[in-house]
Design a binder for these strands. Structure first.
Lengths: 228, 228, 228, 228
DNA sequence: AATGAATGAGGGTTCATTCAT
DNA sequence: AATGAATGAACCCTCATTCAT
């Protein structure tokens, strides 16, 4: 079900431990980006991954390359969720609902700064991942549209951007690097509950019959590139 | 209509030119925060305002104090929009729609990092501005609820957080932090049209009859403080 | 008894309030130098004097000029103490003891950084004040030497430098700028008592018969200029 | 004889070059503190040590940490001098004289601003170094007292503070903070000769029989802490 | 391959000094 | 004459990135 292998195939062989390091770095980076924002010092990421900082640089030449790979990883996992939802839910709109809430739990919101920051938009790997993601989500939406439950004036880009925005971490929440304490606990939890409320409301707005006319035009993920 | 005067009165007299500088700094900061995020170098803000960096520090002792005042300014302007919408629209839900779109145009999304970053939450000025904002929005929502067009399971906090998130600038759009050009050009426009689409969809989800049950509980602006 | 007038005569007439400001500034500066060291911000001195910062600059073109005048003031007061001690004590060595302890109470220790920092050593005013001070102290020492109680291998420069050093404020004591509180109280008191102990011991070392041979040669205040 | 090793052992292993850098930084800092006071720009210290500024910060997180280590180093060297003097001089008071003059040559005077500025007074390392220093000096003084040559109304604290004060560098001598030359040339030499004269006089005051009664009470090094 | 260490460029903030009212 | 305001240079410290072991 996971489609991570094709991308990796192009890499030169890695020693087993090197590969493990690489994955620990990406995982650590994803967590740090979600918890502390896209500006976390790379040294902190290396520390969290349990490797020296130079090891991080051996794998990823600079910050944007790391971001690039985290973005790949997140997109892949989200596409997986879309595929799962479509396979496992009988009701088409319910599959859409499930996917959206799960995408939030995959911290899709953290993707936003990643994608935006990346100078490599247009990189083949990213485009491939984006296309796979686009296809997986389009399938879910298509089913829902076909079942007559999803309004027809929106496209994948609309959904992804809105969901990404609604699930972005509020900066300053999450424990700040300096505050070793404390109490973000309940706030974060509350924030998550908040997020799912908002997603639910947004999903309600997607259902038929459409209750308003939308300005602008429906956008696919391709449209999200700068040059459009 | 604007309630800005009382706050200003309490300040010790400022010379005319100093006051003009102060306001130019706040205006420049709001623009820079919106375009480049809450991390923009203060020196850039000073340059944009046309003053030396130390002048900025004379007016605002540190970054958080500047953020604090920008937040006050934005909250006040948004409350003004709410009051206007309520006064000028005959249909209650239409007033809500108008307010939400205008809040987006006031760049309410830029508030998010500002509010979150501020170490002064709980500061009397901020609480006062928040309370005024809360009251103004609550009036709009209350009307809509009374007219039977707004679902009853959401509160001011739900609306504000969702709208804030949906209108947050995508980091890296607009000019990149390093590129001083600022010509965000067509992407921004596109992004703005995107935003209004999403707001429209979200508003559709707020209308009656409710199409789903919401997780969590309705939240007011007060609930958005850490200690709750 | 005070010999301050001659120096001031050369100044152009000052309005009464301007003169009062000038003196308040010098007094504030002396206190701040003693309490917080020679590096205190000039704005703080102006504040303590109850004037605007620019007023300070109208009177003293830059930091070193202020230091210059504080030094004059301190030297004058200390010379006054020497004259008094000589006039009022019958025993010559006792006059020396009295003078040394009173010089400490006049915060002669604060002079050290002042004199050293001043780029104007060699300025006529300073040389005049120094010469007067030298003469007043030499008179006290001369008496003590004549009475056979003071060893003959030391000169004014030895006494002044040693006393200055022994009474210098310990940096970091006194209330630090940030610590608005607090408890330097007893420490400072203790430090003062310390100082008088050390002065006493040093004075004991000055008495006849000499208990050791001194390295180097006796120095007058003139010898303390850089070029010697 | 030196007791520096135990402290070093507790550090995590350092690479040979890193250790060399660390020591060069401490040495450069000691020299700069002595010559230009405790306020010298850290960047200058780094330059003098021949390393980049960030290297200094890698080893010492901030100014006070550097000060802390310089203080440790100086205290240790001075304790060494005390031990040596006691071991090598047959006459007890002569050992005291020798120690005092050598402490001056170790620039003990530079310690004063260091110790005072340190926010870490009470830090275990500093207390340990202080205790060792205290014990070494007490041994010297004890011998002298036992031989009947040292007055009995003074303690270690008296000696250390007085000697520190008498040997403090005159700020502005040596090169001025701005002048990078450093050629303190003849003035310093003169100043050094001065210092040894004063120390000699002070030592004469310490000898028996006591020539005066001292105000205050004898103080140990422990008494020099703020809370006493 | 992996790592600790080194580095320079940049941002935040303070302060001596000058300017405009 | 007196003042509040403005300014730029300097300093402390951080962090992305490169180097040497």
């Amino acid at each position: 079900m996971t489609a991570t292998s094709p991308a990796k195939v192009s890499q030169p062989r890695l020693r087993a431990d090197a590969l493990r390091n690489r994955e620990r770095i990406v995982a650590a980076a994803r967590e740090m980006f979600v918890e502390h924002g896209a500006e976390v010092p790379l040294d902190e990421i290396a520390r969290r991954a349990g490797v020296g900082n130079a090891t991080l640089y051996r794998h990823f030449a600079d910050r944007s390359e790391l971001v690039h790979h985290v973005a790949l990883s997140v997109m892949d996992r989200i596409a997986d969720r879309a595929d799962e939802a479509r396979a496992q839910e009988s009701d088409a709109f319910q599959a859409l609902r499930r996917f959206v809430h799960q995408a939030a739990d995959e911290r899709i919101g953290a993707l936003c700064p990643l994608i935006s920051h990346s100078p490599d938009r247009g990189h083949p790997d990213l485009m491939a991942a984006r296309d796979r993601l686009n296809a997986s989500i389009e399938a879910v939406m298509s089913d829902a549209r076909a079942s007559g439950q999803l309004r027809t004036d929106i496209a994948v880009g609309d959904l992804m951007v809105a969901v990404t925005q609604l699930t972005r971490p509020l900066p300053g929440l999450g424990s700040s690097p300096r505050a070793h304490d404390s109490g973000c606990g309940s706030v974060c939890m509350d924030f998550d509950r908040f997020v799912h409320r908002h997603l639910q409301l947004f999903l309600d707005g997607l259902a038929t019959p459409a209750r308003s006319e939308l300005p602008g035009t429906a956008a696919t993920l391709e449209d999200l590139r700068p040059t459009t």
